[in-house]
């Protein structure tokens, strides 16, 4: 079954959708959308470094994404405006990454594959990395769920309940770095934030509790992968962007639903 590249592509996409669902919800609730974007952009620098030092792409991107995330946390605690900071760091790491890649003259790399993903070229071992990474993220978030949720609601409520919100932020940051690293092959660094945010945002309308929102986001993400790949296959469009387009349509649909239900 895994011999079929389309089956592998679908499974890879679903793996990413599973990791992105709980994490995407936190990104939306905590208004970290730009933060996710910045971490993803930094990953291209990770790709360059991995190739230069012959590391696995996964390890390289996780390290750089983590470094990026902690730099942002550190600097924002020192009073820099968050949006400016992320604007500077996201695009400068992307630029440095692209420049660094150009130095790797000995290695021929397909830059487009890292920017927009290459889901149809997912190998068996890629699939293994994606599912282990996704499993790790889901397990991490499930384990810390109540603490994460309380910290997200209000940091003082968390403190009073014996939860350290700083520690929970680190948990989220690590989960984000892993998600970015496993998503590169599927949607590429430029569209990772879309996979995080769009299914979660679309799920909001259909949810009354945080848990429900995560499940609905997972369902919408999975559906986007299945439909997006199918469409890409039939009308021959790029696979990663097609998945994001379907997710965006789902969001549009949910917005219309919301509009109709508030009119009643």
């Amino acid at each position: 079954m895994l011999d079929d590249f389309l089956v592998r592509a679908n499974l890879a996409g679903i793996g990413v959708a599973f990791a992105a669902a709980p994490l995407g919800c936190f990104v939306v609730w905590r208004r970290m959308a730009y933060f996710g974007d910045a971490t993803a952009h930094a990953a291209i620098l990770g790709v360059a470094l991995s190739l230069a030092f012959s590391l696995s792409i996964f390890i390289g991107t996780v390290i750089v994404a983590l470094l990026m995330a902690f730099t942002v946390s550190l600097l924002s605690d020192r009073g820099y405006a968050m949006d400016t900071l992320l604007g500077v760091l996201a695009h400068s790491t992307l630029a440095f990454g692209l420049v660094a890649v150009s130095f790797l003259s000995g290695i021929r790399i397909d830059l487009m594959a890292y920017l927009f993903g290459d889901i149809l070229a997912v190998s068996r071992s890629d699939l293994g990395v994606i599912w282990i990474g996704a499993g790790l993220v889901v397990a991490l978030v499930a384990w810390r769920w109540t603490a994460l949720l309380t910290s997200t609601l209000n940091e003082d409520l968390a403190h009073a309940g014996g939860i350290d919100p700083k520690r929970e932020k680190i948990v989220l940051t690590c989960a984000l770095a892993i998600t970015v690293a496993v998503s590169i092959k599927v949607v590429g660094v430029l569209l990772i934030a879309a996979m995080l945010i769009i299914p979660a945002a679309a799920a909001r309308v259909f949810s009354k509790t945080p848990e429900r929102m995560v499940l609905v986001a997972g369902a919408i993400g999975t559906l986007s992968v299945l439909v997006g790949l199918r469409v890409a296959y039939i009308i021959d469009t790029p696979a990663g962007p097609s998945i994001v387009c379907v997710a965006a349509l789902a969001f549009l649909l949910s917005s219309v639903t919301k509009g109709l239900s508030t009119k009643e």
Partner: peptide, 9 residues
């Protein structure tokens, strides 16, 4: 206590 509009609870 402000609960973000995006968080259903």
């Amino acid at each position: 206590l402000h609960i973000d509009e995006t968080l259903p609870i």
